[in-house]
């Protein structure tokens, strides 16, 4: 980042001690917990290791959907303000989270640190999940579907202005959020940046039915109670490097209730879905023989699931990467069965 000291950003940065970390080996990843699939992430904090705010976060569209120099400057200004409040004793110290260092993650030590390879951020996230899976503690909704997309709630931010809302739809519109509002807290936790908001939104229990978001509307603080839609936690995983995610190499769309009835399929809760795209890896790996237009209505004899609305989501949620499953399929009106082998994502470790 080129920031001459006489530029607005440079003047702000010169009031901070700036430090850039490119290797995570000696970093307390418990203190700096975050979504580990971000290649760039910032914290504003102090010498007592109290974190004022985060800056960063991304979505499936791009690594920099929410990174913007104007919003960074706003965050830097706020960080200085919070620091002054902290120095005056106006901000209470928070308890330090349980420390966790990369050398305490056995698979990371075995496959990365002992080979003197770089402890890349995404490896921390993936190995933590692999250990959770091995220990039977992996909650895929929380640990695999990280950082739900706030646009699913209906929020479109005015990115250069930080947490200023540009457009509203769906759940937040129904709750009364309006363009021009500025989000100030989620479930009672103050948020200053998209990074803060995304981090704390990710902490919402996946079984929650409502969240509370406060907004500043022309100086007035307004509390909004937002009803969460079914599968609000679902988010596009394609940019992530998760070895815990079974790769199925097809996409499908849920059948409507009428389409299910027409085919004599399980209606309520049934995950029958129509294949809309076959990934080229399916052909390369011979993982399955599905075709566009096929209807997948069962997996290993199961046709309904409380969480999944498509066959591929059912496999991702309920199966382990590398497993082979049997699909119940309708092709050209005829029912058939076929095997599908799931894969683990392979990447440099």
């Amino acid at each position: 980042m080129l920031s001459p000291t006489d530029s607005p950003r440079g003047k702000l940065l010169s009031q901070y001690v700036c430090v850039r970390i490119t290797r995570m080996d000696d970093i307390d990843v418990g203190l700096f917990d975050r979504d580990w699939n971000n290649t760039l992430y910032y914290f504003m904090m102090n010498a007592d290791e109290q974190i004022y705010m985060r800056y960063g976060g991304r979505d499936a569209r791009s690594p920099d959907s929410y990174l913007n120099l104007s919003s960074l400057e706003l965050a830097l200004v706020k960080g200085l303000e919070l620091h002054r409040e902290y120095q005056r004793g106006e901000i209470k110290k928070t308890d330090r989270p349980k420390p966790l260092f990369p050398r305490e993650i056995p698979l990371l030590v075995e496959r990365t640190i002992s080979r003197n390879a770089c402890v890349e951020c995404h490896l921390i996230g993936d190995y933590l999940n692999v250990h959770r899976e091995q220990d039977g503690k992996l909650d895929k909704l929380t640990h695999m579907y990280r950082s739900p997309d706030i646009r699913t709630l209906g929020i479109e931010l005015d990115v250069p202005k930080g947490l200023a809302v540009k457009e509203v739809r769906d759940a937040v519109a129904a709750a009364g959020m309006t363009p021009g509002d500025r989000i100030t807290s989620i479930n009672g936790t103050p948020v200053w940046t998209f990074g803060d908001f995304q981090y704390h939104y990710d902490k919402v229990n996946r079984n929650a039915e409502r969240i509370q978001i406060a907004v500043d509307r022309a100086g007035a603080l307004i509390d909004l109670s937002i009803a969460l839609a079914e599968r609000w936690w679902w988010t596009d995983l394609t940019f992530r490097q998760w070895t815990i995610e079974p790769r199925v190499y097809f996409d499908s769309v849920p059948l409507t209730d009428q389409e299910k009835r027409d085919r004599g399929l399980v209606n309520r809760g049934g995950f029958a879905s129509k294949v809309k795209r076959i990934d080229m890896f399916a052909e390369m790996t011979k993982s399955h023989e599905l075709r566009v237009g096929d209807i997948v209505f069962g997996v290993d004899g199961v046709q309904r699931d409380e969480m999944a609305n498509t066959a591929e989501l059912f496999i991702k949620l309920r199966k382990t990467a590398g497993e082979t499953v049997t699909l119940d399929v309708i092709r050209d009106g005829k029912r058939m069965q076929m095997k599908l082998k799931t894969y683990k994502m392979s990447f440099r470790k």
């Binding site: 901070y16 001690v17 970390i21 490119t22 760039l40 914290f43 960080g79 919070l82």
Partner: peptide
């Protein structure tokens, strides 16, 4: 990182910490 903490203690400045892959 440790040097940044020491520098922040000495100067009373906040820290802007960047994690970059």
């Amino acid at each position: 990182y440790r040097e940044a903490i020491q520098e922040a203690k000495r100067t009373q400045k906040p820290i802007f910490l960047e994690f970059r892959c």
